[in-house]
Design a binder for these strands. Structure first.
Lengths: 239, 239
DNA sequence: CGGTGGATTGAGTGGCGTCAACCTGAGTGG
DNA sequence: CCACTCAGGTTGACGCCACTCAATCCACCG
């Protein structure tokens, strides 16, 4: 089974045999995490970065008053704290949502890549730039869309991200997130999440039973969220 | 007068003489923009990136229904679309708020830097990572803070960012943003922006007359916003 | 001196928050 | 095999924050 980071990057640009070999080589140290376990904590200074091989994680921040914010969701193939290579200390906590398998990649290996493999280094940079583009899109959605639009936007995005690493097809995917967590993602109350989900169901845009989400009408769903996948940079061009 | 990008990067790590020379060399082509003029538009593919030498810009996105979102504010020293080196096409539009002076840096020069100057390349990467950290912080603020907290957070952040490039001191700075634009930043209505500003004034946290904002009580202001400057990475460490 | 952009204020409304109860299915232990 | 627990989802009642619509005020400027 091929490394999901390679899968993810090769969606965006061709990797050479050597580049693939280097990436494989850096992902030898593996660690497992249980649901709800912190992978890295705000304030820590890291000596390695964590590549998510399997499972879902959230990037989150807890307030003094106990409220939580989730500022990112990560899936297979995401380098959940690649930025800790240059940013110190960690600005936010990363927590396992499901059981997770992570590769711990030493910063020294990454620094080696920036020294000797400029194209591969640009691809790693790219991966953090896509994260940033997703953040911007969430900011747009949070500020300007209705809660239903915001949820629709999230569902469209996650479907494409999962599809690009072979984790979704036929307009449906496994979504292991409770409505309480979703509230922290969308910045609304858990009760209102429930009503928002029902709104999308009532409009026959999605079905969501157990952990399975199925998009019933991609066109109307994406239109309702002003969703344009361009920001995900899912095309293979020289970078 | 020294290049504000050098100023900004040297807050975070030492640059060598050669690195400074290279940066100076890439910023020779200058272009001016008038207020409200688009600098780069969503959907365009760039051959150069724009370094903001003077003025303020917004990164923004307009919806089908005419609503606007502002996902970032940029000031002197910010590379407003450095990510266009690797992301194609531009995901959002960048617009001048005040008169702006920009250096247009060819992507080929930047790619050269990634090939032959790994440390400088990491510093450019760092600058996009700080942008991303700011996005995450805005997401947190937008989702979990009251509108007053959110505004307080923005004011704290901008003060430190401006101070780090010599554009603010003594807890006050020039803020050339109308309440209507601020509404697009905060994701609330212009009327509510006004009431939120008055709330901060009533609490004697800030004064804001004309384009001048003065922070009257940094401690209470930052506490009211759960503001922790760590995410701005304003300390000089090897990167 | 009227026009214009921006700030301010008031009135009425609705989306979303809180609180609280209730339902369901899965897991556990007697 | 059933009572119990618990997490997660669902629903209703009620209130407030923030929205919209509108009018007014002010400073600046051609």
């Amino acid at each position: 089974m091929t490394n999901p980071l390679i899968l993810k990057l090769e969606q965006r640009d061709q990797l050479s045999v050597e580049e693939r070999r280097i990436l494989e080589g850096t992902t030898s140290r593996i660690k497992e995490f249980r649901p709800n376990e912190d992978i890295v904590r705000e304030g820590e200074t890291m000596e390695f970065s964590c590549l998510l091989l399997e499972g879902w994680t959230s990037r989150n921040k807890t307030l003094a008053n106990g409220r939580h914010a989730i500022t990112a969701l990560h899936v297979m193939g995401d380098f959940v704290d690649l930025h800790s290579l240059l940013l110190r200390p960690m600005d936010q906590t990363v927590t396992a949502i499901t059981p997770c398998r992570m590769a711990l990649v030493p910063h020294e290996s990454l620094r080696e890549i920036t020294r000797h493999h400029p194209h591969l280094a640009r691809m790693l940079w790219l991966s953090t730039l896509i994260d940033a583009a997703i953040h911007r899109q969430w900011l747009f959605a949070m500020g300007q869309l209705s809660s239903a639009g915001q949820l629709a936007h999230l569902i469209c995005e996650l479907y494409l991200r999962l599809q690009s690493v072979g984790q979704a097809r036929d307009l449906s995917f496994t979504f292991p997130i409770t409505q309480v967590l979703l509230a922290d993602v969308l910045g609304i109350s858990p009760v209102h999440v429930n009503r928002t989900v029902q709104e999308l169901r009532r409009e026959n845009l999605i079905t969501w039973t157990g952990m399975l989400i199925r998009i019933e009408d991609w066109d109307r769903l994406s239109r309702s969220a002003d969703f344009d996948p361009a920001y995900l940079n899912l095309s293979k061009v020289p970078r």
